[in-house]
């Protein structure tokens, strides 16, 4: 058995963590899957900065739909729209600062309806077709 070169051994140790989430379910015309990629070190720094930004407002975790409608934890921003806007932009900047790659993939219900019946049966639901699409895109994309 041959021993891999040091270069090879170090290269295979780069394991990225891809945080993967969707927006939209089968009741919407579009389902979007997004992936953000970084190695564990940058993700740790990201976590610290993210929590430093949201914690002063008493927010324990970010949820965009709630933020957009100022519901749930985001009710506190009903009288302070500027604070919420600044927070939202600061969080977006933090994503751009720490994530080393990003991938976004969308399917529409029209695309799903045009798939052969065998594939629709396999997927069971447009949601899983979108999940599949997101995975393929994430794995084959150029980030």
């Amino acid at each position: 058995m041959s021993v891999p070169s040091w270069e090879h051994r170090t290269s295979i140790m780069a394991i990225f963590h891809a945080a993967f989430d969707e927006s939209g379910k089968a009741d919407r015309e579009h389902i979007v899957f997004a992936g953000l990629i970084a190695t564990p070190g940058p993700w740790q720094k990201f976590n610290e900065k993210w929590m430093d930004l949201i914690s002063p407002f008493g927010i324990r975790y970010w949820r965009s739909l709630d933020a957009a409608h100022r519901t749930g934890q985001f009710k506190c921003f009903r009288e302070s729209q500027n604070d919420l806007e600044k927070l939202t932009l600061d969080l977006a900047d933090t994503i751009c600062e720490f994530a080393e790659g990003g991938s976004i993939h969308t399917i529409t219900m029209e695309q799903y309806r045009l798939l052969p019946q065998t594939r629709r049966t396999e997927f069971k639901d447009p949601f899983y077709a979108a999940f599949h699409q997101g995975l393929v895109g994430l794995a084959t994309g150029h980030m």
Binding site: A19, D21, S23, A34, W62, T88, L91, I95, I104
Partner: peptide
């Protein structure tokens, strides 16, 4: 897990 919250914003 904040990276998932970030992915939520990205997809949204």
């Amino acid at each position: 897990y904040p990276p998932l919250q970030a992915a939520d914003m990205f997809a949204f």
